[in-house]
Amino acid sequence: MRFIVGYTSTPTGRDALALGIRLARAARAQLDLVLVVNLPEREAGDGPADDEYSRKLRATAQQWLDDAARSIPAGVEFATHLVDAESFAEGLLDAARDLGARFLVIGAAHGGLLGRIAAGSVAGALLHSAEVPVVLAPAGWATRPSAVDEPISRISCAIGARVGAAHLLDEALGVARRVGAPLRLVSLVGLDQEDGTARPDALEAGRRHAETLLQAATEQLPSDIEVSTDVAVAGGVEAAVAAIDWDPAEVVLLGSSRLASPRRLFLGSTAAQMLRELPVPVVVVPSAAR
């Protein structure tokens, strides 16, 4: 299994690297640090000065990768890659395909709230086109105590009853098995309305849905992995997220919109609202094959 970290020598890149190290350790996976270089296109008449600029740019980028590699703890298998592409998102998508990556890890956009995830242009592009799950690190993740070596305390899976829910549950089961962490299934049935609000009977519907999920997960996971449920019911997505207890050391899985193309990401409105409110790392999972 391979995890790609979209790296830049910035706080955003360091957040992604810290989370990538932690996840690679937990999943016993290889870490691939990818730094995308946007070299200027050569035109007729370009001279030695242009070649020198490109060489210096690549040398600087390689130095950033080398510096980042020195911060990776012993025992974590890794490789570094310089990728030429017209955009950061395009380079990461190409690298994910070329390397056969299982997950793609990036940081939050610069300028967002500390401890929250602001999806900038790169995240926006990946969250609407990636073919592998995209993991987002909250702003400031690298500055947390034990950001790299803290065990994953829990895998939470926010799941409704719409098309694609079964695929998301399968993904959550696989992650929980791989990292050996407890699994919590958060029922979003009460928020499956077009306006994101809960009906008066949503609590009961959410509870029934949670019990169904609990039974399905318990049957498929080893007995030593604890499974629990929670029900998200409130007057809107933000309020529902705020009403649920989130452990700083957990990871949350969200699914793609039902409008997503097969095996691709497309962030829906409910997931987008949750993403802005969640104070923990988030994994957004592509849709299933049809």
Rank of each mutant, 00 (worst) to 15 (best):
A119C: 11
E194H: 10
V105N: 10
D84E: 12
D94E: 14
V5R: 00
A242H: 12
E250W: 11
L33R: 01
D224M: 02
E250T: 11
E219F: 03
L265I: 10
T12H: 03
F3G: 00
V135E: 08
E86R: 08
K56N: 14
L254P: 13
G91Y: 07
V231L: 11
V148H: 01
I152N: 09
W246T: 13
E43A: 13
L173Y: 10
L19W: 05
L82P: 02
S257G: 12
F266A: 15
P182S: 04
S146T: 15
V34A: 04
A239D: 15
G140W: 03
R178S: 15
D51N: 04
E43I: 13
V134D: 08
D84C: 04
V252L: 14
E194L: 12
R70I: 10
S287L: 01
G111I: 00
E194M: 11
G180F: 02
A165W: 09
H81A: 09
A16Y: 01
C157V: 13
R55V: 06
E131S: 03
V122A: 05
L127V: 08
G45V: 12
V231T: 14
G164E: 09
L57G: 02
L191H: 08
D192W: 02
Q63H: 07
E277N: 12
L278Y: 15
D149Q: 03
V135N: 02
A232K: 02
A119P: 08
S9W: 11
V251I: 12
P73K: 00
D149W: 00
A147C: 05
L185T: 13
S54D: 14
V175N: 05
G255N: 03
L188D: 02
A288F: 11
A216F: 01
A181S: 09
T229M: 05
H209M: 08
D192N: 08
A61F: 05
A119T: 14
A166L: 01
E77F: 00
L191A: 12
A176F: 11
L57M: 04
L126D: 07
E52S: 00
S121R: 03
L127S: 06
L169M: 15
H128A: 09
L259S: 15
T143P: 01
E131R: 01
A142T: 14
G47R: 05
G120C: 06
A16S: 01
V241S: 09
S121V: 12
I21N: 00
A172K: 00
R58L: 04
A130C: 02
L267P: 05
W141H: 12
A239P: 05
V105Q: 09
